[in-house]
């Protein structure tokens, strides 16, 4: 059997499985969804950081990354139903100090939204400054609500 045919044989079922997984996972498993989303945000932040460090940042890449952070941030707050902390780095404080947590999440939504605006504006210094604000928001919330390991 050629490699091409093997690939084709595996690829279709794999695609179907992935699709099915995505459809099933999204509404029913907030834990897995929020974890995957946080990883996506982390990866986007890494892209932004590298672009800014590189000296001559490329706007399309930065815009896509900023939009990923902003769009994902808007969904994260709703993905922490009570009792979904077990087996994760989420600290119980998320649920015992829900108002503070929600405020942090709202701050992330606001600051990452600003980041998109600033990237659109194209001023590299401003982008760098707002990137730091967003990063500080991540770190600040993690300090309070995420197990440090």
């Amino acid at each position: 059997m050629s490699i091409y045919r093997t690939t084709r044989r595996i690829a279709l079922p794999l695609a179907v499985l992935t699709l099915a997984g995505a459809v099933v996972a999204a509404p029913s498993d907030p834990k897995a969804t929020r974890q995957a989303s946080f990883k996506k945000m982390g990866a986007a932040m890494k892209v932004l950081k590298e672009q800014l460090a590189g000296g001559s940042p490329a706007k399309p890449g930065m815009l896509a990354a900023a939009q990923t952070v902003a769009a994902t941030a808007r969904q994260q707050g709703a993905l922490f139903p009570a009792g979904s902390g077990a087996g994760t780095d989420a600290l119980p404080a998320i649920w015992t100090q829900k108002a503070t947590f929600d405020a942090q999440m709202a701050k992330l939504v606001a600051e990452s939204g600003k980041l998109v605006t600033v990237v659109n504006g194209g001023n590299v210094d401003a982008i760098g400054a707002q990137f730091k604000v967003v990063g500080g928001t991540c770190a600040g919330c993690h300090k309070q609500f995420r197990a440090d390991n």
Binding site: M41, A43, A44, M45, K46, V47, K49, G135, H142, R146
Partner: peptide
């Protein structure tokens, strides 16, 4: 975890 801090070869 935030994608903020990294070693020099993380790029």
């Amino acid at each position: 975890v935030d994608g903020l801090e990294s070693g020099p070869l993380a790029d």
